[in-house]
Design a protein around this nucleic acid. Structure first.
Lengths: 393, 393
DNA sequence: GCCATTCGTTTGGTCGTTGCACTATTGTCT
DNA sequence: AGACAATAGTGCAACGACCAAACGAATGGC
């Protein structure tokens, strides 16, 4: 009862992974790719169909002689993974199917920081239920992105969410009936870039996201860098410029005091300026920064150049230590990226050897939820037998 | 012919790993530990005995009633892994058996930097053959530690070994008849700390070694951090103090200009001082530094304090980014470590949250070869069927 | 001296893959 | 038009690996 089932699971997973990574193909082709026998692949595909994970598609005409094969592709009646992001002033949900396509998406303004955590988790439960009602696929799991560090399913630290440290998020979402995992938002965003962006499957990538603070996620060797206490890849409080501005953490010269959103706004505008109105929506204010920069406003451009240089200085450390193939900028960095890349690459080139690719994220503000949904789907790829056999018609 | 053999391999590996990690134990205990049946474990152990990887040991009397079991332990007629270090002015070899015990060790002074690479590789081949002649175990592989970065089995960069970049080390050592892998010396040292030191099996550790430059190796999540081009974990040229002293790499302020051996000697002695005599053996000079420091020489102590502080500043970056459970200091850092730890931990505590363990390596200058030998043995633990069945008497 | 207990092996059974034969479907050649 | 070659997918007997249970072996306790 131990190992023969594991063989089956491993081979089911191998077939599924092949279809995910290399696209739809015939059973014969799968057999050639995996090294298994055609007979075995037929059996495996049959089981995957019964579990609703794959389906037969169009006929495949290889151009040469012989009987054409029927393509097998991910999908079937379908399962899906749910990603949820809990942030200071909003909730977001995104549902992804096995093919990596977005099946549903919802964003909801909510004063998370000012509400009791239990109430927020209830709102999440309600939101997830509502979104899933519109999705014609079986949810297999839910991952919550939190702006802080996480141990297991318990929030360890969350500078911007008072009341959340110590909270067991999974317990609070038991009402969804789904297995819940919890992770740092920047880490999940990094995984999203790894799984979906134009740089998908880049085994070594660094993701940097600009918010009020600065978040980071590192994928190294195809795996997320976690560290001994889950703080790996945290870059906001790197001490790069000792003796500089004081940081909320109590020390001085943390990187986020140099390149965080606060630094940009302080440098770009005086206290009276509408840019600094804390009541305005952040995206509006960012849009105004971009507008001013495009109009050629000298002070705005200088502020953005300083941010870019500061990013380059820090990125140089990350690059020379982690040697990523690409650095992806997300959050507000991506919004104002057109003005950051030049000073950034200059600062970087002055400090590290060789060419380095720095790109802007194309996932926008959905990176964290997308990464969460991706993580929620992983158990299916790891062991397809976790999905129950559907009582077929 | 595909998958059932893989099951066998995986279970053989599971038994072997259990014996390695948790020590000798009876077949019945192995069955309980692995979840396999006693019958299966008997069969697996039998095959491992036939392959010369384990052997029956003493009787195990559990103190209570019942038939005593026979302990199974790593060893048998035995296999071994070979680690070779090629450095500027010496070669070193170390042979490790499955139990992690040193079976042979040899060090040979040689002007590697000044000799043709092919000649050096011939010397390595001769040395390895000579050392293995005294070892009563079958060698299964050889790993070469090189002071530089490596791609596959080809040296990519080697600042102190002109003529080595571009060289295929494995091809040059074909004469040994062993599978050859090549890796960075600091990376292998980090693996040695991970596999053998008092902090063995710490899944997240950072190793720093002080030589002429500064080398680094990072183990994260139980695996070596490699990066996209094999440069991951390289810390010598981290740009931590911009605008500071010029570095051999052409830039300024690299970490190794602050904490490298050159920085220590420059700060501790004037050009006329015997400490700065480039002809003297490095270990002699280091011994003199330690002697002066113990005697209370103010200048020497000040120099060491500065090195310690510099180490702390850099370690702060590594720690906050990688979140290791422990930082291990090797190379010359370990030799003069007693004078570095205090300023180091002070500088570290001022820059990162939480307690951090910084310790001195106990492996001395054998870390790299030990790590190499460890790596050479890995295929056996990964798939014990790679070791041929011995034609038993 | 007998019994309970634990160790290790033997035996029959199950499960999953393999290898081969066989059918199905298409293009090409005569 | 018909035969042939080539490729796709399925059915079936056999093999290898593990499992479960029963059995002999060795020891301590009563």
């Amino acid at each position: 009862m131990q190992t023969q089932g594991q063989v089956r699971s491993a081979n089911l997973a191998a077939v599924l992974a092949r279809l995910r990574d290399d696209g739809p193909r015939s059973r014969a082709r799968l057999a050639a790719d995996t090294g298994l026998t055609k007979a075995t692949v037929s059996s495996l595909v049959g089981e995957l169909v019964d579990r609703g994970l794959v389906a037969d598609g169009a006929l495949h005409r290889p151009g040469s002689v012989g009987r054409p094969g029927t393509l097998v592709e991910l999908g079937g009646r379908g399962v899906c993974g749910v990603g949820v992001e809990v942030n200071v002033d909003y909730l977001a949900v995104l549902v992804l199917d096995l093919r990596g396509e977005v099946r549903a998406e919802r964003r909801l303004a909510l004063d998370v920081a000012g509400s009791p955590a239990g109430q927020v988790l209830d709102a999440v439960t309600t939101l997830v239920r509502a979104v899933l009602a519109d999705v014609d696929a079986t949810p297999v799991g839910l991952t919550v992105a939190v702006p802080g560090s996480v141990q297991g399913t318990v929030v360890a630290t969350a500078p911007n969410l008072p009341g959340w440290p110590g909270l067991d998020v999974a317990a609070g979402l038991a009402g969804t009936g789904l297995p819940v995992t919890v992770a740092n938002d920047a880490d999940l965003s990094a995984l999203a870039e790894w799984s979906a962006g134009p740089h998908a499957r880049t085994p070594d990538l660094v993701y940097l996201t600009g918010e009020v603070g600065v978040g980071g996620g590192v994928v190294s060797g195809g795996r997320l860098l976690r560290g001994s206490t889950g703080l790996g890849g945290e870059v906001g409080h790197l001490a790069l410029t000792p003796g500089d501005a004081p940081c909320g953490c109590g020390r001085r010269g943390c990187w986020e005091t140099v390149v965080g959103l606060g630094a940009l706004l302080r440098a770009a505008a005086d206290p009276g300026d509408p840019l600094c109105d804390p009541g305005r929506d952040l995206e509006d204010r960012l849009a105004e920064v971009v507008a001013r920069a495009r109009a050629g406003d000298a002070r705005t451009l200088a502020a953005l150049t300083d941010i870019g240089t500061g990013l380059g200085v820090g990125a140089a450390v990350l690059v020379s230590l982690l040697d990523p193939a690409v650095v992806v900028l997300g959050g507000y960095f991506a919004v104002v990226g057109e003005f950051l890349l030049d000073p950034l690459t200059s600062a970087l080139a002055a400090r590290v050897e060789g060419p380095r690719r720095v790109v802007l994220s194309t996932l926008g503000f959905t990176a964290a939820v997308r990464g969460g949904a991706h993580v929620a789907l992983q158990p299916v790829f790891h062991d397809p037998t976790t999905v129950p056999l559907e009582a077929s018609a």
